[in-house]
């Protein structure tokens, strides 16, 4: 049994951040809050998501035997519901054998997915990133938006004092670059990797924040980190690169 109240738009942002990688996933509920760690079906992207109890307006977790409850949720369904009703201020969530979502007069019962049918929580790969970049999330989103018009992948990297993003189509090309002094932070070595835009675009849509931190390497995964609700929500994505085949 679990009961909580949370701001509707915050919950929607959280759910959108999760559905950028997976539609259905395990959700761990504990006294500390919610946690989702999942990889997408193609094994390309991973999300490590934490929604701390401070982000909720009310939070009651009554688990008898164990500290942690694990349930299976269809987040894409939840996202659909929130998209319709998110204008109302708060959402009440109640969990017994189903998840009850209440938005003012509207209440919706979402049946749970049996955990056995869902993939196990993945291990976090041990990665050492040579390069870290902190930039304006708005800039990042905008560039991704432009790149989406060009093709299906994007090159991201650091060369000396410059962080760059490049995309091209058969006819046209795009390059975005920011120098060290135009970034919030840049540290580490040169790096260059290619990533699928489908994934990054979905991730960037959840990024309604001021700043985003990127960790990069050469032909190496990308780690994206950002926070919502004053740090009460922490989102980390890992995205495997595309390796040039020649």
């Amino acid at each position: 049994m679990f009961r909580a109240r949370i701001d509707a738009s915050l919950l929607k942002e959280c759910v959108d951040a999760i559905t950028a990688v997976v539609d259905e996933s395990r959700l761990k509920i504990s006294d500390d809050g919610w946690r989702v760690r999942a990889v997408d079906a193609a094994n390309v992207a991973l999300i490590d998501f934490e929604l701390r109890r401070e982000a909720f307006d009310e939070y009651e977790n009554q688990t008898d035997e164990e500290q942690e409850t694990e349930i299976g949720i269809d987040f894409s369904k939840l996202s659909d519901i929130l998209r319709v009703g998110w204008r109302k201020g708060d959402i009440t969530l109640e969990l017994n054998d189903k998840l009850h979502v209440k938005m003012n007069a509207l209440s919706y019962t979402l049946s749970l997915i049996s955990i056995e049918t869902l993939r196990k929580e993945p291990k976090l790969p041990s990665l050492e990133f040579p390069t870290r970049v902190v930039l304006d999330a708005e800039d990042f989103r905008k560039v991704i938006k432009v790149a989406e018009k060009m093709g299906d992948h994007i090159v991201m990297g650091v060369s000396g004092d410059v962080f760059f993003m490049e995309a091209e189509s058969e006819m046209d090309s795009m390059r975005f670059e920011l120098r060290r002094e135009e970034l919030l932070s840049l540290s580490g070595d040169n790096a260059r990797s290619i990533f699928s835009l489908d994934y990054i675009a979905a991730m960037s849509r959840a990024m309604n924040v001021e700043t985003v931190t990127l960790y990069l390497g050469t032909d190496y995964p990308l780690r994206i980190e950002f926070e919502l609700a004053d740090g009460a929500v922490h989102i980390m994505y890992l995205l495997a690169p595309r390796i040039e085949s020649e």
Partner: peptide, 16 residues
């Protein structure tokens, strides 16, 4: 329409 491949997608599990 715009699907073109010049590179191969790696997997997260490759780094496990």
């Amino acid at each position: 329409k715009r699907r073109k491949k010049s590179s191969e997608q790696a997997r997260i599990s490759d780094w496990l």
